[in-house]
Design a protein around this nucleic acid. Structure first.
Lengths: 148, 148
DNA sequence: TCTAATTACATTGTGCACAATATAAATGTG
DNA sequence: CACATTTATATTGTGCACAATGTAATTAGA
C-alpha cells in the first residue's frame, strides 16, 4: 500500500482539519469580543507591541502574521470603523500607515485575557500534548522558512 | 509574565501559520493540475472511494472533510464545470446529489501522484518529524471530536 | 392519511487569503 | 536635478469557510 494519495496519509489534511477545529473553538469566545480570529491575531500583535512602546506599521503586522496588505487593509479598516484602532499616514514617510490602539482597543485586552483561559479549559487535550504539538509546529515552521 | 496573550504562546497561531505555509507549498504543484487546495482534498476523497467502488454523496464529502454544503456546493459546481466530476440527483432520494468522477477526473489521479512526492522533496523537514507532527495532530483532532 | 419534523442540499452574505495590479511616495543613479 | 527603481499600501477579483436561511423531499407521528 504505497497509498501516497490516501487522505489520511496527508499531513496537510491533518493540519487543515485541526486548524479549523481549533479555530471553531475560538469562534464563540471571540464572538463575545466581536472579533474574528484574524482580527484577534492582529490585536494580539498590537497589544504586545504597545506594551513595549513600539509603533506598528501595516508592514510590521504583515511580517509578524505573514499576511499581505490585500488581507490586512480591509481587516484594519473594519477594526478602525469599530473604534479599536486608528490608521494614520506617517508624516515622515507618506507611504507608511501607522496603526495604533485607541483606548477602547487597548482596554479590550482585559476581556481578551479570558479567551485562552476558557479555551484551555474547554479543550479536552492534555496540556503537555499541546505543548509538544506547538513545539513541533514551530520547528517545522522555522525549517520551512529558513530553507525550502 | 502572565503573558497568556503573547502571540508566540498561542498554539492556534502556530497552527494557523504552519497550515498556511504548507498550503502555499502545495499551491504551485496543484496549479499544474489546475486545482485549488480544497478541490484537491475533494478529489482525494473521490479517488479513494472510487477505488473501493463506493458511491459518494455530497454529505459523504462533508463528513470526511468536515465541510458543509455552503462550501461544497460551489466547489463541486466548479469541478463539474471543468469536467472532472458529475453531479446527479439520486433517483431513489431526490434530496441527495451523487458525485462521480468522470474519466477525465479519474485520469487526473496519475498526475496527482506526483504532488506529495514533489512536496516531500521540496520540504526541508525530516520525514520522522513530519510523521510525529501528523500523529500529534491526529491525536488532538480525535480528542477534540470525541469530547468537547 | 394528513401534517409536523427532519434531512439533504442550495443560496445569500460576510470575512478572510492570496494573486495580480495600481498608485503614490521615497530612493538611487546618471 | 531628471528619471528609473524600489517600497508601502490599496484595489480588484477569485475561491474558500461558515453562519443563517431557504426549499424540496422524506420520514415520523397522531
Amino acid at each position: 500500500m504505497d497509498d501516497l494519495l490516501a487522505l489520511d496519509n496527508q499531513i496537510c489534511f491533518s493540519l487543515y482539519a485541526v486548524n479549523r477545529a481549533v479555530t471553531s473553538r475560538y469562534r464563540p469566545l471571540l464572538a463575545e469580543l466581536d472579533l474574528t480570529y484574524p482580527q484577534y491575531l492582529v490585536m494580539l500583535v498590537l497589544w504586545e507591541r504597545a506594551r513595549a512602546d513600539r509603533p506598528t506599521r501595516v508592514s510590521d503586522l504583515g511580517a509578524r502574521l505573514r499576511l499581505d496588505s490585500g488581507t490586512l487593509t480591509p481587516l484594519l479598516k473594519r477594526l478602525a470603523q469599530r473604534g479599536l484602532i486608528s490608521r494614520d499616514r506617517s508624516l515622515v514617510d507618506e507611504r507608511v500607515v501607522t496603526i495604533s490602539l485607541t483606548e477602547k482597543g487597548a482596554d479590550l485586552r482585559e476581556l481578551a485575557i479570558q479567551v485562552p483561559k476558557k479555551l484551555l479549559c474547554g479543550l479536552d487535550v492534555a496540556p503537555e500534548r499541546l505543548l509538544a504539538l506547538r513545539n513541533e509546529l514551530n520547528a517545522v515552521l522555522k525549517a520551512m522558512e529558513i530553507r525550502g
